[in-house]
Amino acid sequence: MTADTQRVPGAGTAGDTDGGTRPRHPAPRLAAGVFQGVAGAGMLVMPAVVHGLAGPSAPLLWGAHVALGAAVALLLTLLARTGLPPMPLAAAVGSVLGRTSQRCVDLAYTIGFSAGQAALAWFAAQSVVAAVAEDGHAAAWLGPVVAFGVLGVGFVLALLDVPTPPALLRLRLPVVGLLAFACAAAAWPAAAPGSALTPASVPGAAAAAGIALLVLYFAGVGWESVTDLVPRTKAGPGVTLAGVALGASAVAAVYLPLAWLYGAAAGRPEGTPPGWLRYALSTALLAVITSYCFTNIRAAGRIVARVTGSTDPGARRRQLAVVGLLCAAFATAGALPGSVVWLLLLPACAATVGYVMGAVAAFRRIGNVTRWLAWPLVVALAAVVEPIRLLLLG
């Protein structure tokens, strides 16, 4: 889930993507757009969360996630190539299934975005608390203060509509990538059992793997960016397919090494990194995650505007206030064990709703051409309900 779009909820980014000159050839341009849509804050959060749930099998789950995400992107590409103009996923769904379906997708993304920001804020808080706790200075009030502080700063920046220079947005993604690899190499923050990154109990390894696979969609929101990108490229089917495949390969080339690196570092006997590194990584995480909360809260406000249909400039503050209240409400659950996982389930479910409805729209629009892909994809996405049921029963 990355940033300003829908092309949002997300871990993706339209309005605030690269902002610069893209490659002229359609395939690299499409690949860059897919990668920028998917890559984002999920690179920071998900290695620790997935490792805490699935342990050594985490890289396999990342591989399954990329394969499923690429299938989603391919299916939505087929939908976008039926003559639709460049538009967000919700609008593409609405153009086929009706206005009510569009609002359902937008509403799901609004809730998912709000919970996602609470998860990001508590992830940053977990890092700060863990860094301080190693020196014996942890306090019960520190986590909530950091989490609500991150959300508060992000909300105020969105409310003030602070400009985001394109050069700064172009720089953020490589900075996040470098920080993600640094955190993975140090296995920081550690996914200790019973912490905010790991539920106190999970009913079995299969359920934990299923939950991890679903939660990974926080990192995978952005595959839907093709509904905006593909019509803009106006490329033929072969070039379009090559661009989507290249973008998925780039995502795999980043996420799979991150998963492996975190697992390898977590298995080392040295324990937590030295104090100076803990504080440096936590400070960097705090700054970067605050920037994502800012752009994502602003993006969520735009989704609320689509849900309400309001074009009144004065309504913008009210729309952001709705998002801010939702973020604060979700953040109140942050002190519970495994709270980050619980909160990440909501944006992951929002992505699942959007992708399932996108698959149905593609099936309706294209018919038998997509049957071989649409129905298996719908079944695979809907199957993630089972691990949630097991977790709730546990």
Rank of each mutant, 00 (worst) to 15 (best):
A131T: 09
L241M: 05
A208I: 14
T100W: 09
V150L: 09
C327H: 03
F35K: 09
V221A: 14
L392E: 10
A73C: 07
V239M: 03
A133F: 00
A374E: 07
P47C: 09
V129C: 01
W188P: 03
A3S: 15
G37S: 13
G177A: 13
A158I: 11
E270S: 11
A91L: 08
P9A: 15
G236T: 04
L281T: 04
D106L: 13
A133W: 00
G112N: 10
G69S: 12
V288K: 07
D106N: 14
R365M: 09
G20P: 00
A252P: 02
L75G: 04
A280E: 03
A67P: 05
L171T: 14
R302F: 12
S201D: 14
M1L: 15
L373D: 07
V230W: 06
Q6W: 04
S114G: 09
L277V: 13
S127Y: 00
A70N: 04
A31D: 05
A58I: 12
A48L: 06
G40C: 13
A118V: 03
L120Y: 10
L44S: 08
V369A: 15
R302D: 15
A64P: 00
V251D: 04
A264L: 11
V215T: 14
L74N: 03
G177H: 06
V244P: 00
L178N: 02
R364I: 02
Y355P: 00
V49E: 07
R298T: 12
T370R: 07
G314W: 11
Q126D: 13
A206V: 15
A382Q: 04
R302N: 14
A139F: 01
A130K: 01
L390R: 15
A64S: 03
I289A: 06
P269G: 06
S249D: 00
L178E: 01
L76S: 04
G275V: 15
G314R: 15
A380W: 02
L373I: 14
P86N: 08
V360P: 01
A158N: 08
L344N: 10
A80D: 03
L320Y: 11
V378F: 04
T198H: 14
G94Y: 01
G152L: 02
I211Y: 08
T110F: 09
A380Q: 02
G52Y: 05
F294C: 03
G358I: 12
S225K: 12
D135Y: 00
L381H: 08
L345Y: 08
F148W: 10
D18H: 14
G301V: 14
V215F: 06
V156F: 11
